[in-house]
């Protein structure tokens, strides 16, 4: 059974595009977090008191937050893989429905 389309043809295409984009970008961003990219330092939620505190604590905190960020990105990327599969399924279901109507 091809399944009934929940999303319309346009919405499923839109979701598909966002999912592909999300998967790619979030995977890459996860890698960048993992290698401690300096450009993403601004996006780490380092507490003010740690910033002013000891250097060692600060470095540990930053290390932790980087790995946490990488993890978050990869979780989100996985979710996007799921939604990609879902929207591909929806997209195909819509197409099949359209073909059947045409016949």
């Amino acid at each position: 059974m091809p399944g009934c389309p929940v999303l319309g043809p346009k919405l499923s295409l839109c979701c598909l595009l966002v999912s592909v984009w999300g998967t790619l970008q979030l995977c890459l961003m996860g890698v960048f977090f993992y290698v401690h990219s300096v450009g993403l330092l601004e996006d780490l939620p380092v507490a003010e008191e740690i910033k002013r505190g000891m250097l060692k604590e600060y470095l540990e905190e930053v290390d932790y937050l980087y790995s946490k960020g990488a993890q978050n990105c990869w979780i989100a990327a996985c979710l996007y893989v799921f939604s990609m599969v879902f929207s591909i399924w929806q997209f195909l279901a819509n197409r099949r429905l359209a073909e059947r109507i045409e016949q």
């Binding site: 966002v18 979030l26 601004e42 996006d43 939620p45 993890q71 978050n72 990105c73 996007y80």
Partner: peptide, 28 residues
Amino acid sequence: GMVLSLGLQMEGWWGGIILYVLFAFWAV
């Protein structure tokens, strides 16, 4: 800074899910 960064700064297991939602928002 206002959208995607919020998702990146979440701690805990739900951070990924929030990032998932915020990314779609940011992309749109």
